[in-house]
Write a protein that binds this DNA or RNA. Structure first.
Lengths: 348, 348
DNA sequence: CTGAAAGCGCTAACAG
DNA sequence: CTGTTAGCGCTTTCAG
């Protein structure tokens, strides 16, 4: 079995290109006794081709192992069936679900996802953006709503549909699928208040969205007439370790703490771990609320009360927005607030 | 600011294509007073263009906001600068690091990653593979070493460089970056034996690689003259919850268990959680070894002894293999065994 | 060092 | 229902 020997290869050849010439639509067409155009139609609009012709083409495709060159198709039709997602990082399980759901939903519709990691900084986001735009994607999924003026400008100039995610703003670039971090913080604060907790604190990552939650939490506490919560910042991405250290530090400053809001479930796991090590009872002495509802939250000991955000839904909806726009169907609703839910478990 | 109004747009137009026509190399060329070819060279081989010309071209690029169409370039040059990664799932933190490192390393060299999720089953891996091959990627990164004969055949026919990862085999398709799951299991078993543990068990995911570790672990135990370890299988991807349930079930069958090997750190976390709930002392009554060395392992209470596999390194090396192959430099070593390490902490 | 011509493989647009 | 023609935007190749 000599490796790249497709049926009916280019005769002339000797084009000193990188790889062996692959089977083209014309090759298939010749074998099927039709034109290249019919091959294209048989693949993209099978219902506009009579069954008999379709069968011949499919036979030829099977025989040759033809796989259409999407680069060529995309160039001509100006539809790449490529969608780019820019996320800060894949480390830490927050965006996994979203990327996973995005990939799946997109693949189902014949689109592919290309991944770009911007880091939490905006450093080389520019180079990344060029590389992405160069692929002429049919859509771009962004994390968050704060992007440089330059990013805005270039995105608009490229005319590529954009979906911002994981946040809310009255002025989206284009479409948006997210939720309100302020509303989350307020709900969590009310929950502590309801449970009679008055000496609160926050352990929060230092990224933009987490900090927005922290600030809103502090504001909400003051609004409810509680003492100003302590805020302990840790570097993103969060770890169990920083949760442990965070609680230790907080307890030093305010030993009578009775409620702590963690900006991720991983931090909350760290807090819980530290309470075990310290012999602090949860929720007796200390109530804990996390953020994310990672799969382990329900099985912790005690089970973790946390904020559930449906990351999969964000991915699926973002995919839907872009695919619908690309197919030229109804322009979907611009802003989708997917909300959130506090999952009541044992840690409060 | 009218949206898509690049400087010097196509005059005639009315091509009823999806998007506004974007700036092309010819547009830039006209403005810079050179030919399109020189624009191309200024971008791809800046050193083969005199400084004066380069400056003119760069000015024109800046003025127009030109972003080269990589679809067109890829079509003509037969180099897409696209690399595809096929992973079972992004859920669960195992492959995150690898995908993260892959993305970063690739981006650094001007390549983009496209992501495909095969699921742990081989179900629609075929459709996925077509979609991927259709993009004419310069390389494909596969997870594991067991792929259908059809996958092998098509990959060979397409002539695309392939890197298999996260496993070892004497007969790779092309290149490979991984480690031996059998060696891992044997080392872990020896470690238990060394610690004087004789009544062992395994809690393992039911995916192929995890099961290979389980089997090797059982074999190694018998070899060392220990009783045959109990094996408790849980569905992949693993969760803290299945770890808890797993330990409970195991303890029912064999209350005097003194060592358990978990096929992921998440399972180990579950086991640890259950020991807290049950009042079983670790490592006193029960020694625990995990797999993965996730970031939380070191901060657990007690800190988790576990097998560290450098997922980032796998990603970086895979990227290197493909980029070097694509640039036509030295054909890199075919098989890279990155090994593993047992990280000694408090749970044994 | 620079440009002109040609064409990568596909599909839009228009006949038949 | 099917084929022909043209050309997407770039880069290879070859000649100045």
């Amino acid at each position: 079995m000599s490796p790249p020997s497709p049926v009916g290869p280019k005769a002339a050849a000797s084009q000193k290109t990188a790889r062996a010439p692959s089977v083209t639509a014309s090759d298939v067409a010749r074998i099927a006794g039709v034109s290249a155009m019919t091959v294209s139609r048989a693949i993209n609009n099978p219902d506009r081709v009579p069954a008999a012709t379709l069968a011949k083409v499919q036979a030829a495709i099977a025989k040759t192992g033809y796989v259409p060159n999407l680069l060529a198709g995309g160039l001509r039709s100006n539809k790449s069936r490529l969608v780019a997602a820019l996320i800060p990082t894949l480390v830490g399980p927050i965006f996994n679900e979203t990327v996973q759901a995005l990939t799946e939903a997109l693949n189902q519709h014949g689109y592919q996802l290309i991944l770009g990691q911007s880091g939490y900084a905006e450093s080389h986001e520019d180079a990344l953006l060029s590389a992405i735009i160069g692929r002429r994607p049919d859509g771009i999924v962004l994390t968050g709503v704060n992007h440089s003026a330059d990013t805005h400008r270039r995105l608009r100039a490229a005319g590529i549909p954009v979906v911002e995610t994981w946040d809310l703003t009255p002025t989206p670039i284009d479409m948006l699928v997210g939720f309100s971090h302020v509303a989350v913080a307020e709900a969590v604060c009310r929950r502590f208040h309801q449970a009679g907790r008055h000496r609160l604190a926050v352990i929060s990552a230092d990224d933009e969205r987490a900090q927005r939650r922290s600030h809103a939490f502090v504001a909400a506490a003051l609004n409810l007439g509680l003492a100003e919560p302590l805020v302990h910042l840790v570097p993103a991405p969060t770890t169990l370790g920083s949760g442990r250290a965070g609680l230790r530090s907080l307890l030093t400053q305010k030993p009578d703490l009775d409620g702590v809001f963690c900006s991720s479930d991983l931090l909350a796991l760290g807090v819980l771990t530290e309470t075990h090590a310290l012999g602090v009872s949860v929720p007796g002495q200390l109530a804990v609320i996390g953020f994310g509802d990672l799969d382990f939250a329900r099985d912790l000991h005690p089970a973790l009360t946390t904020v559930r955000v449906d990351g999969s839904l964000i991915g699926r909806e973002a995919a839907r927005c872009i695919v619908e726009r690309a197919e030229g169907r109804t322009v979907p609703k611009r802003v989708i607030d997917i909300g959130f839910k506090i999952i009541e478990r044992a840690s409060v």
